[in-house]
């Protein structure tokens, strides 16, 4: 594992908190780390170039914006077609996440997609289309019944006190 300096970790810890909603947000974050705004911006750009930051922006509450039918769909895909099928499914705008995962005994699903739709009918229609388009007929729809937790990860905080 790559080593992160104390300052790298401090920058990451500052960035993972809520983004300040003020005129000069990076200046505030830089002050928390104890470096200049210019240096902070330079390090952020570097983290983006290194692809350690995926995105800086907002995530909406999808139920509030009208997406009420959300499902994890697990697919059993032939291993030699996994890459091709995963890429095809990722192109669908209703698919927010698409990961391949190692199957385990008695559970042979190896591709996982999160599907977001306004209704269950719409959700099932999307899944039916993905199935037809890729020829994968063995799948399981796992509807979200209750969200117990959804939060951003706090990196480099192991061993620090939690609230």
């Amino acid at each position: 594992m790559e080593n992160f300096s104390r300052q790298d970790k401090a920058i990451i810890r500052a960035l993972q908190e809520d983004f300040p909603l003020c005129e000069e947000p990076y200046k505030i974050l830089a002050e928390r780390v104890g470096i200049s705004e210019e240096e902070f911006l330079r390090r952020v750009r570097q983290l983006i170039d290194e692809k350690k930051i995926r995105k800086m922006g907002a995530v909406l509450r999808h139920r509030e914006v009208g997406f009420n039918a959300n499902a994890l769909c697990a697919w059993h895909v032939p291993p030699d077609k996994l890459d091709e099928i995963a890429q095809a499914m990722s192109l669908n705008a209703a698919v927010s996440h698409c990961y391949d995962r190692t199957p385990v005994p008695n559970w042979n699903y190896n591709l996982y997609t999160m599907i977001h739709a306004k209704t269950r009918d719409e959700c099932e229609k999307i899944i039916g289309e993905l199935s037809t388009a890729t020829g994968v007929g063995d799948y399981k729809i796992l509807y979200t019944k209750k969200e117990w937790k959804k939060t951003g990860m706090k990196y480099f905080c192991e061993g620090l006190p939690t609230n």
Partner: peptide, 22 residues
Amino acid sequence: AGFLRRIGTFFDSNRLGYQGTL
């Protein structure tokens, strides 16, 4: 009003040295 879950930075967990399991 509750439309935004979070505004901030999203990291690539693998590139920070973390592993993810479902």
